[in-house]
């Protein structure tokens, strides 16, 4: 039998109030083991309070070749940013 442990992606919340951040990956036979391995590998120095693991094959990623159509159209939509709008000097904060 030759079946290797699949790859998992590990996301760790460093402390409450922060989002889970991608920390790296590891191999594990199942989700439970992935979680335990993630704890042992990625939180040895007190780095986390919560862990997510997801098998890498379940992640759908955008293709960088499509970056033009995906992301460039957002570049000129300056009206989505507050600096696009003028305010009289008297209004200091808005």
């Amino acid at each position: 039998m030759k079946k290797n442990w699949p790859l998992w992606e590990v996301f760790v919340r460093s402390k409450n109030g922060l989002e889970h951040r991608h920390f790296g990956s590891l191999h594990a036979a199942d989700a439970e083991m992935a979680l335990e391995n993630a704890r042992d590998v990625y939180t040895r120095r007190n780095e986390g309070v919560s862990i997510w693991v997801v098998e890498s094959k379940h992640i759908t990623a955008s293709n960088p070749e499509n970056n033009g159509e995906l992301f460039e159209p957002a570049q000129d939509k300056v009206y989505r940013h507050p600096t696009f709008y003028t305010l009289p000097d008297e209004v200091k904060h808005m």
Binding site: M1, K3, N4, W5, A29, D30, M33
Partner: peptide, 11 residues
Amino acid sequence: RDAAMAYAEKQ
């Protein structure tokens, strides 16, 4: 490693 895989598949 094989045992862990086999177990995972059974589960």
